[in-house]
């Protein structure tokens, strides 16, 4: 299990990185945290001729909390974001989800933006980006553009990023005041990819539910948002859990794999959602 040869590029600016990307075309591959990519290379499931290692690019390691979003640079490691108190205060869902990402040693190196660019339906972060209606900031030879989450995830492992584009940051949207969020997942072992997971945001005004929305892990091809506002009812004291579970079951389309059947995952994600709703409303 050793990678095939590649040319290592170590740009120090975004402009240089984009220039390399342009030059090597589809033969290049961005290397950020590498926690997903390097095993793929070692197993020789992929042998790109060029790796554009952005770890030396200045300015990509910042977390900024803004009025409407938390902006996370492409070199922010999961651990850094997980431990950032201002990011937690602004958007608790980030930490709620990030604690489920693999194990600390992986989180110390893996990047949040890389995780999104990987667009694995079993990843936690894509569902968070979807639920927060976040935006991916991409830079390429044709300039910069913002890609909203709804357009970013195209298929399993497939994003709207072009081969010569670099995701330099993402902006996770912040929720309105009165929003409670939570994240729940069930994996076979701690730190494994979840059999099913759910990110949930419920906005309350007094005791009235103004909105309830969810996105999912491992049970949909691409992370999308399910609006549960209708199903859950208005009164926080008596949420319609059966209707919520029904809506979730109808929304998801889990596949069977070696760890669980599709039917089981469908049941599981409905139950996780039901429990998470109860937990959020009883806080």
């Amino acid at each position: 299990m050793k990678p095939a040869p590649f040319v290592h590029h170590a740009p120090t600016t975004v402009a240089e990185a984009v220039e390399v990307l342009r030059a090597v075309g589809s033969h290049g591959k961005i290397l950020a945290g590498g926690q997903s990519l390097i095993p793929i290379l070692s197993m020789r499931l992929a042998s790109p001729e060029h790796l554009i290692d952005i770890n030396g690019v200045a300015g990509l390691d910042r977390i900024e909390v803004r009025d409407d979003c938390v902006r996370v640079g492409a070199l922010v490691r999961h651990t850094q974001l997980l431990q950032d108190e201002s990011a937690y205060a602004a958007l608790p869902l980030l930490r709620q989800a990030l604690v489920h990402v693999a194990h600390p040693a992986i989180r110390n190196r893996g990047t949040t933006v890389g995780s999104l660019a990987h667009a694995d339906a079993a990843g936690e972060l894509p569902s968070v980006l979807a639920l927060t209606e976040g935006v991916v900031e991409a830079v390429g030879p044709r300039g910069s553009r913002d890609i909203p989450a709804s357009a970013f995830f195209v298929g399993p492992l497939e994003t709207a990023l072009a081969a010569d584009e670099l995701a330099v940051a993402v902006r996770f949207g912040r929720f309105p005041e009165g929003t409670r969020t939570g994240f729940a997942e069930s994996a076979r072992r701690s730190g494994d990819y979840a059999l099913a997971g759910v990110a949930l945001a419920i906005t309350l005004q007094d005791k009235v539910i103004r909105s309830a929305r969810a996105s999912f892990v491992s049970v949909t091809d691409v992370p999308d948002v399910l609006d549960l506002s209708g199903a859950i009812g208005s009164y926080a004291a008596v949420p319609d859990l059966d209707a919520v579970a029904d809506a979730v079951r109808a929304h998801v389309s889990p596949d069977t794999d070696i760890h669980a059947t599709g039917d089981y995952r469908r049941m599981l994600v409905a139950e996780l959602t039901r429990r998470l709703v109860t937990e959020l409303l009883s806080r």
Binding site: R189, S190, G191, D192, Y193, H259
Partner: peptide
Amino acid sequence: LLNASFMDFLMPYASE
């Protein structure tokens, strides 16, 4: 063999 890695062959961690 469909689970020929430690990702899918689930040897227990301390948590299990």
